[in-house]
Design a binder for these strands. Structure first.
Length: 723
DNA sequence: CTGCGCTGCTTACCT
DNA sequence: ACAGGTAAGCAGCGCAGT
């Protein structure tokens, strides 16, 4: 048996820190028994081989607990400096329970796959591209939404894979269908199961219907059943969504419904995450898409089963194309992170970096430090210098500002005794530049997709190194994080000075980017790029400034709130006050129209639009969908005093869902599904005024003339002779 | 009693 | 369980003025 600590482990190279020290290529799964790990390897011809290795579950504590039966090892350093190793997963779990009852500090990962990969130095998918693994899409169509309702049977199951195979399973006998489903999955033996809302619908539905027939869906790689795990949280940027994962031992279950939300988080392009809408937005919908209203699927199935089959197959194929957009980043990260693809696709980026660090520390026999307690520290530099309509605007930004600062100034956590932080960041940066160069060279679409996936997986990790410093992780360091932002602010100010010294008008600076109007004489893209290059040369070594866009006009409203009009006539809105998805559509529409007229200089048009909109609201001419606001139902919705009215309206809606609420004339809130012609028109007229107020700084002195209070608009309307 | 400004809490956005 | 900064909405409070 391998013993990591009795011999001096050789120091890891930067590549080994990032990818693990085992070169074994093409591992597609690690499957766990009580005492063993089964490793599955897929050869280029598609055939699979497997072998077994010993599993030694482990946990870390800050002191030795001799009454816990384990092999205890002292790690070098402070913090979590004792490692307990166990002969089986059962023994590990009972020890973990005991330590939990003792309320002692412990690092104990609940996933045996992760534990095995961390200690062994293997990672999955080495040397493989996204399409090399065997991916299967699953989609089911049912009579209803509740599988417990006896009549709500599964009508059909569609299976599709990336080897050009598909099958639609339907049968008058539901049990027979379920058996066929399990048989086909086992025969085809996929590595990855993909689906849209798999965790929330298809897989739990299959499990429940099988249970009703006394069947167990044994579709694991070695014939184990599919199971539902306990509730976890999916980090989607700053918010968390509770969900219950489904596990199929030896395969990776990935849900494109979750993946697309993570993918869209920073972009915010999508209004809805339903498969049809997403497929349309990403232009991957079938050209001859069959559409069916799911409410009467049972009826459709009776009258035109072929149409339903076609519809379901298109769903599965669209899911496959969606996966190719939203999942490669997570797939290629799995080549680095000691965890399964399924976990990588649902873990936060800080957690992934942490797993890489901890793996390297344990390999060296080093202890894992305790995290520093949280404290606040200042962040990026933000300033608005001009508001209103500004023509001929250029955007320049510093590429990878914080990672560059960490590399140039050698800023790393003080607790990083082994020195993995900067080498890992350096290696990621170097490899990303390489991948981007390959991407530029490649012409074959598959090659391009591969290099783009690779560089994207590096980018996400690179951008998370700074955030890691200021979060609750073992190697956090708030002093280091503060030095990074301090240096960033200096550079931003230096940039502004250089621009203004050379005759530019700076409009807005935010952290690492600046919008400005270049000096007279700098006309056209070529001249603008040369000018940015000239400014770039005034910045410190290792800090790269680049041209990042040019606009016919910018309407600067408030910090982090502005609209851009490009030279093709497209608008880009930035900031919550201009583009919040929560805002009432009529207000967003109003703001968009005002901005358009503002850039055209049509002030009279703005005044007319405002008055007409108020009158349309008061006359009930605006549909309720335009008046309602979108809200996310959270735990807080039901516990916070601020949300009392909303809580009453959304009773029965589950946490995590979005609802559309409108205000009734009696002041209460209602869901638009229950709309009864009782909206509070006065409230919506006043709200329009508040939308206008958001643009006050951009409008300037005319504001009160263009936007009188709604009461006054009404008075003028009643005395038309005065207007 | 009403209206106003303030605080605290929450969400949604930007880099 | 990557970060801080900004805008905006709502409820509740105290205060001033009626």
């Amino acid at each position: 048996m391998m013993n990591l600590f009795d011999i001096d482990a050789p120091a890891l190279s930067a590549e080994q820190i990032l990818f693990g020290w085992r070169d074994t290529p093409r591992l597609v799964a690690v499957e766990i028994t009580d005492t063993e790990a089964i490793l599955h390897q897929r050869a280029p011809d598609g055939s699979c081989t497997s072998w077994r290795e010993r599993l030694t579950p482990w946990l870390l504590t800050t002191q030795q607990y001799t009454d816990i039966d384990a092999q205890w090892k002292r790690l070098d350093g402070d913090g979590f400096c004792w490692m307990a190793q166990f002969g089986s997963w059962t023994e590990y779990q009972s020890a973990r329970m005991r330590l939990r009852d003792m309320h002692v500090d412990v690092i104990a990962y609940g996933s045996p796959e992760r534990q095995f990969l961390m200690l062994s130095g293997y990672t999955l998918f080495k040397g493989m591209s996204f399409d090399d693994v065997h991916r299967m899409q699953v989609d089911i169509e049912t009579v209803g939404l509740n599988p417990q309702e006896p009549a709500n049977r599964i009508l059909l199951v569609v299976l599709n894979d990336n080897r050009g195979w598909s099958e639609v399973i339907d049968d008058a006998d539901e049990a027979q269908m379920l058996r066929r489903f399990a048989q086909l999955v086992c025969e085809r033996d996929p590595d990855v199961i993909e689906g849209h809302n798999l965790y929330g619908f298809d897989l739990p539905y299959l499990i429940e219907r099988a249970r009703r027939h006394g069947l167990s869906l044994t579709i694991g790689r070695s014939g184990q059943p599919m199971t539902i795990g306990s509730e976890r949280n999916l980090p989607i940027g700053a918010i968390n969504r509770p969900y219950r994962p489904v596990y199929i031992p030896g395969r990776h279950v990935v849900d494109t419904y979750f993946a697309v939300q993570r993918y869209d988080w920073a972009k915010g392009d999508l209004q809805s995450y339903g498969l049809k809408e997403v497929a349309r937005a990403y232009r991957i919908a079938d050209e001859e898409r069959v559409l069916i209203d799911r409410a009467d699927l049972g009826e459709q199935w009776r009258s035109d089963p072929e149409k339903v089959r076609q519809y379901a197959l298109q769903d599965a194929q669209e899911t496959a194309r969606l996966a190719e957009i939203v999942l490669p980043t997570e797939f290629y990260q799995t080549q680095m992170v000691p965890d399964t693809y399924q976990h990588v696709a649902t873990a936060g980026s800080g957690e992934k970096i942490n797993a890489i660090f901890v793996r390297a520390y344990l390999h060296a026999g080093y202890a894992i430090p305790k995290p520093q307690p949280a404290r606040d520290y200042p962040g990026g530099y933000t300033e608005v210098r001009r508001t209103g309509v500004i023509p001929r605007v250029v955007k320049a930004d510093v590429e990878s500002l914080y990672p560059s600062i960490m590399l140039v100034h050698r800023i790393a956590p003080a607790s990083d005794r082994l020195g993995v932080f900067l080498p890992a960041l350096e290696e990621l940066t170097r490899r990303r530049l390489e991948a981007k160069a390959e991407l530029r060279r490649a012409t074959d679409p598959r090659q391009r997709a591969y290099w783009d996936g690779i560089q994207g997986s590096f980018k996400v990790l690179i951008n998370s190194f700074y955030g890691y410093l200021g979060a609750n992780f073992p190697f956090n360091d708030f002093d280091a994080a503060q030095r990074v932002t301090e240096e960033g602010r200096k550079i931003a100010i230096q940039l502004v000075d250089a621009l203004e010294r050379t005759g530019s008008q700076v409009i807005e600076v935010d952290t690492d980017g600046v919008y400005f109007q270049p000096p007279e004489g700098v006309e056209g893209q070529e001249a603008e790029e040369a000018y940015v290059q000239q400014i770039a040369e005034t910045l410190p070594p290792g800090i790269r400034l680049s041209f990042d866009g040019r606009y016919r006009a910018m309407i600067s409203v408030k910090t982090k709130n502005y609209a851009l009009l490009d030279y093709e006539g497209n608008w880009i809105y930035k900031g919550a006050s201009l583009r919040s998805r929560a805002d009432e559509p009529y207000g967003r529409q109003f703001i968009a129209e005002v901005l358009q007229k503002l850039v055209e200089g049509d002030r009279d048009g703005i005044a007319r639009l405002y008055r007409q909109t108020i009158l349309r609201i008061l006359n009930g001419e605006i549909p309720i969908e335009e008046l309602a606001r979108r809200e996310r139902v959270t735990e807080k919705t039901f516990t916070s005093e601020n949300k009392r009215k909303a809580a009453e309206a959304v009773r029965g809606v589950s946490v995590g869902d979005y609802v559309n609420l409108y205000q009734r004339a009696d002041g209460s809130l209602g869901m638009i599904e229950d709309y009864a012609g009782d909206e509070d028109r006065e409230h919506y007229a006043n709200k329009l005024y508040r939308f206008a107020l958001r643009l006050r700084e951009a409008i300037g002195e005319d504001f009160d003339i263009l936007f009188p209070r709604p009461e006054q608009v009404i008075r003028e309307q009643q005395q038309p002779s005065l207007f």
